[in-house]
Amino acid sequence: MVAPALVDGVALGSFEWLEHVVETTTGWAGLAIIFVYSFLIAFALPGVSEVVLAAPLDLGLSQAGRLALIIVVSGLGKAVGSVFAFHIGQEAKESGPVIGFLRRSRFDVVEWSENKTLQLARKWGYVGMALALSVPFFPDTLSIYAFAVLEEDYVKFALATFAGSVGRLLVTLFLVGSTVAAL
């Protein structure tokens, strides 16, 4: 577990400090932070990826250019992170004890994936994965792992994750609109 960090005298627990860094970073180094955050959100961090849209990067670009760059960098980070999750999922589906542990866990990830994600994957394949990942404010780590157990192609998996990540941020911009665009 990560120790709480102090930001402006306020203790931030677990991974809130990382979200705070993303939300307050400026300049070109902020793109690296966005990439790392998106990479980690794909396979390890709880939470949502939309926070990257709030990064106040001062890059000398127009607002649209800044948002486009953030979206592409975040999508690339999540695609690379999803390849790690994909590899872990491939190993897990061959491990009886891992599946047993998941079935006994507090949240039955296997049952959830069989009920919702499996239906999407069977019907729509990688397009279904991209659509599932386009849903804003839903932790996508769970969807990535659920699809990782079902699919077999690393490149298509990464491309679907990239498309879903970009779609998610675009949907968020559409829903939130001028609030995010004013940042």
Rank of each mutant, 00 (worst) to 15 (best):
L6T: 08
L6G: 07
D8C: 08
G9E: 05
G9T: 13
S14D: 14
F15C: 08
W17H: 15
V21G: 03
E23L: 10
G27W: 04
G27D: 11
V36H: 13
F43A: 03
L45Y: 14
L61Q: 14
S62R: 09
G65T: 08
L67N: 02
A68F: 13
I70N: 03
G75S: 12
L76Y: 03
S82N: 11
F86D: 03
F86V: 15
Q90F: 06
Q90R: 08
A92V: 05
G96E: 10
G96A: 14
P97E: 01
I99F: 11
I99N: 03
R106H: 08
F107A: 04
F107C: 02
D108F: 13
V109M: 12
E111W: 14
K116E: 06
T117Q: 13
T117A: 09
T117N: 15
L118T: 12
L118G: 15
G125E: 00
Y126E: 14
G128N: 03
L131Y: 02
A132R: 00
F137Q: 11
E152A: 15
V155D: 15
F162I: 04
F162H: 06
R168V: 13
L169Q: 03
L173G: 07
F174I: 05
S178L: 03
S178D: 08
V180D: 07
A181Q: 09
A182H: 03
A182Y: 01
A182G: 14
